[in-house]
């Protein structure tokens, strides 16, 4: 029962802060709301007993990526005065395409959720699969990553390496004019 109440409270807060990300007028506040949203998502992970994913979500998104966002926004100094005016038509098209994307995502995920819960009902007679308390802990996660999902794991690490090399190349391309100290 407490679990359900917590889920509802967390879910409501998550949706609220996520809406504030796009509704708040100031870009810096949007970023801060996004940070809060990431925290709340980590809360959802904690409720599902996935401590490792929860904390990695905080470290990577709230702790590193959002700090860089803030960094850039602080230097840009965006105000209401020099905000570019968007034409009415652009706004209309943006709403339509965003809504279409949202519908597609909802359709796709609801289909797969239905499928999953059907499978669960067939298996256990209950829509919610009760996993053990140890499921999301780091030992089991690491074991799964290095046995069953080793190929996707390695492929994604190669992707990271490639993007790192790319970033270094992009940063190095311009001729350095700063005097080496």
């Amino acid at each position: 029962m407490t679990y359900e109440i917590l889920t509802y409270i967390l879910g409501g807060l998550t949706i609220g802060t996520a809406l504030m990300v796009i509704l708040s007028k100031h870009p810096l506040r949007s970023v801060l709301y996004l940070v809060v949203t990431f925290f709340l998502i980590s809360g959802h992970f904690l409720l599902m007993n996935a401590q490792f994913i929860a904390i990695v979500n905080v470290i990577v998104y709230a702790g590193a990526i959002m700090v860089l966002f803030l960094f850039v926004l602080m230097l840009l100094n965006l105000d209401k005065d020099n905000e570019p005016k968007t034409p009415w038509l652009t706004k209309f098209i943006a709403v339509i395409s965003g809504g279409a994307l949202f519908t597609v995502i909802i359709a796709a995920t609801s289909e797969s959720f239905m499928h999953l819960s059907q499978k669960a009902v067939e298996k256990t007679g209950d829509a919610i699969v009760k996993v053990s308390d140890q499921e999301g802990l780091v030992e089991n996660l690491g074991h799964l990553l290095f046995t069953e999902y080793i190929v996707p794991f390695e492929v994604s690490s190669i992707l990271f390496l490639a993007s790192m090399v790319g970033a270094v190349l992009l940063a190095k391309r311009e001729k350095q004019t700063i005097v080496e100290l």
Binding site: L28, V35, F52, I55, I59, V67, L70, M74
Partner: peptide, 23 residues
């Protein structure tokens, strides 16, 4: 179960107070 990562996560959040206050 993940104490040491918790420390690391909090350390990485430590910058927000100074950044927000300074800005």
């Amino acid at each position: 179960n993940i104490g040491i990562l918790f420390i690391f996560g909090v350390v990485s959040l430590g910058v927000y107070g100074i950044m927000i206050g300074g800005w």
